[in-house]
Design a protein around this nucleic acid. Structure first.
Lengths: 150, 150
DNA sequence: CATGACAAAGAATAACTATACAGAGAGGCG
DNA sequence: CGCCTCTCTGTATAGTTATTCTTTGTCATG
């Protein structure tokens, strides 16, 4: 029960900025979890979340949201800001980001519609990019590294 | 005045964990700044600091220093509690957990920064772990199974 | 000098969060 | 079973933080 609830909390805070535990409690209620502010306080502590002073929203540690203009510029910015490491195994590219930043960078990659990237799957701090073949995977790695300034 | 005070705040929070604005106020006082909690609240907001849920300390964004021993212990607990099954195909490891527990375990794996795991992607009850090669994938499987008590 | 426009900050307090305590339920064991 | 222990959670409340309202100081201008 507890583990499941904490998983939902992570999903919720990724979806919209939640600036109080009371608000989070109401969202959990809609998701079918009946609980109290006290329990949420403990969950947040166990998950190691962080409350940003800027807007008071709870976040996974290390997350910094950005909303840029054009898709390529967006990808460039996102790569420069979030990218930690890129690795390739055959036609698969594993992209590492800071904790909780994978979704943001993956979104930018998807929107850029790069010819070499067929699709992406993002976890918390890792993105798996599937390329059509090793050559294009390698090209993608180079492009991303250039964006990130490696 | 304000800029200088905010600079001192940054120095102070780097030196020791400060878990409340009142404590910060006393430190500022010793540094020669006479001010109130309200002003410090505003300073913290302008500096964009974050309050960690773990120990309640204020930090600059992006400084998520957690000791390796702690994250490993966390992984061990998470594995013991959530892990159901582990399987390997080449350099990919498929980890099965109870429903809704994949995110939690994946987070623990990510934080542990194990050398054999390049990255993870978690769904609801399944985690895909990408290793650099089959040998390391196998090592990862063994390690996880040991944690889980298999 | 008077005045208006601001930025900064304190006092009071509303809003929010963490915690002490207690109770319920699960599992282990004589 | 009866008792112990452990984990999880709710209630009540202590503790902490954000905000509203107000004052003060500074600068520019007529």
């Amino acid at each position: 029960m507890k583990a499941r609830r904490q998983g939902v909390i992570l999903e919720l805070i990724d979806q919209e900025p939640l600036h109080s535990q009371e608000l989070l409690r109401r969202r959990l209620h809609k998701a079918g979890f009946e609980t109290t502010q006290a329990t949420i306080s403990r969950d947040i502590k166990e998950l190691g979340l962080v409350k940003r002073a800027g807007d008071g929203a709870y976040q996974r540690p290390g997350t910094d949201a950005v909303s840029p203009a054009t898709v390529l510029a967006a990808l460039e910015r996102a790569a420069a800001e979030f990218l930690r490491h890129v690795d390739r195994v055959q036609h698969l590219v594993v992209v590492r980001t800071g904790a909780g930043q994978a979704q943001a960078l993956a979104l930018a990659i998807d929107r850029a519609r790069l010819p070499e990237a067929i699709g992406t799957i993002a976890g918390d701090d890792t993105i798996l990019v599937v390329a059509r073949d090793p050559r294009r995977a390698s090209a993608f790695v180079k492009r991303l590294e250039a964006f990130a300034g490696f």
